[in-house]
Design a protein around this nucleic acid. Structure first.
Lengths: 250, 250
DNA sequence: CGCCGCATTGATGTGACTCAAGGTGCGTGG
DNA sequence: CCACGCACCTTGAGTCACATCAATGCGGCG
């Protein structure tokens, strides 16, 4: 379908230089590490896996094997293929985000995970988590809430609303990870954003131009600089039947 | 906002006539009961709660209290209130469906649960589930997958597509519970459906009329009779960037 | 260079929302 | 019993937003 096909990750495992997350430099923004910070033993990660840009970590139909993943660094795109053979993007995952929690109860994966840039993910053995049920349940429950919130604002009526919400979401997620909330680089293409927001790429481009023209932000390629986050938030919130990313938690 | 306000459930607890689900008549279609059917001990339910029509089981902000619910019978509407004070429907829950799993990791509920008809829910104490982690994790993971699938087809582009997908979903869920897949009664109003599908009530009405005119189904009030499910499925699947409820599981 | 993928911009059509006006069934009270 | 009010649903006409089609500019790469 595309000019070049996406290959599978080489799955080169790195030596797990730490058996827990206490010394992990990603811990401050990693959900498993954070959730477990009150617990005596942070979760055990079995290994870290390199996933080069445009390679798959797993794809729909792969056997699950009792493990899930936390993004160490990079960006992962989680996609589903529809009955009419179209790719639909379910989520963009950044460092600390959890991947494949939805597969725990199943033998095979539902979706495909592709790296948008060179990335690394921590593989977490599900059975290692059994001994810390509260930790796992907290993570998993937050994941459900997260899905709901996203699904929520993704149903915002207007194109501008959805885009504004998306940008605020990205801003927040960068901020949470210690980066600037004003200026950040999008790891994904316009097409991917359009796909995720259920817009045509043209419409996305126009809305972005509109925002720029209104002094809400500046755009250089994939580099975004927010100029008026307050008004952006109002845009996302306002109008009639709208929702906005709340981010009360995690 | 409405002519009359929704009151809280009286929370009249029924005597838990069974301490497990083996003798529950809802077990065949109940997720906890089904998921645990291979386990030696089905999950313990602490009590069953009557929720009269138009009363709340809980609302956003309520303290959670380490429990979640499985619908015993009836229909529950799970809603969120947006920043602009509009109600958005997150899900319609039927017998066997799980409610408030998303709240386990939090102190307070995010959404509000209202009964659309006289209903009963089984209250499940979270700590009772700790001893059967596989069971709980299976349920909870399936819940995530469910959210994803729903969010998926809810982003279908066309009004007709979303409506078709919704009707097929309802049909399937009735079928799974031992009722007719062809003929079923919708527990929710047109407004609620429109809200859930992110459509105007007028548009919903028109699409429904169109379907009827095309011989896809018959409509009498809230009674739906599917006449051509195959074509309905094609409608939901076809077109460009569309998804359709798959229902491979549970 | 010339190709290709990506992003933007313009012109045009259409699908869904909005506003507004009838029905229809139901409960209430005369 | 009927009149009435009140949700709820439907139908119609007009408008706007987004998709579609098409053309152009830009950058990387063979």
């Amino acid at each position: 379908m595309n000019g070049f096909s996406i290959s599978d990750a080489s799955r080169s495992a790195m030596a797990p230089d730490q058996s827990n997350c206490t010394r992990c430099r990603a811990a401050p923004f990693c959900i498993p590490a954070r959730t477990g910070q009150d617990a005596p033993h942070p979760p055990v990660l079995s290994r870290r896996i390199r996933v080069a840009r445009d390679t798959r970590l797993f794809q729909a139909g792969d056997l699950v094997g009792e493990r899930f993943y936390a993004i160490y660094y990079g960006t992962i795109k989680y996609t589903f293929t529809t009955a009419s053979n179209h790719e639909k993007i379910g989520a963009f995952l950044m460092s600390g985000d959890l991947l494949a929690l939805d597969a725990i109860g199943f033998r095979r994966h539902h979706g495909t995970a592709v790296a948008l840039e060179d990335s690394e993910v921590c593989e977490i053995r599900y059975d290692c988590m059994q001994s810390r049920p509260m930790l796992l349940h907290g993570m998993i429950s937050k994941q459900i809430a997260r899905e709901q919130i996203t699904a929520h604002w993704l149903r915002n009526s207007g194109a501008g609303q959805r885009l504004a919400a998306f940008l605020l979401d990205m801003s927040w997620r960068h901020y949470r990870r210690g980066y600037s909330a004003q200026r950040f680089r999008l790891a994904m293409s316009r097409q991917d954003i359009a796909n995720f927001l259920a817009l045509s790429p043209e419409c996305l481009s126009r809305e972005l131009a509109q925002f720029r023209q209104d002094g809400l932000l500046e755009v250089e390629e994939r580099e975004i600089t927010l100029r008026d986050a307050a008004r952006l938030r109002q845009l996302a919130t306002d109008s009639s039947p709208a929702a906005v990313p709340v981010h009360p938690q995690v």
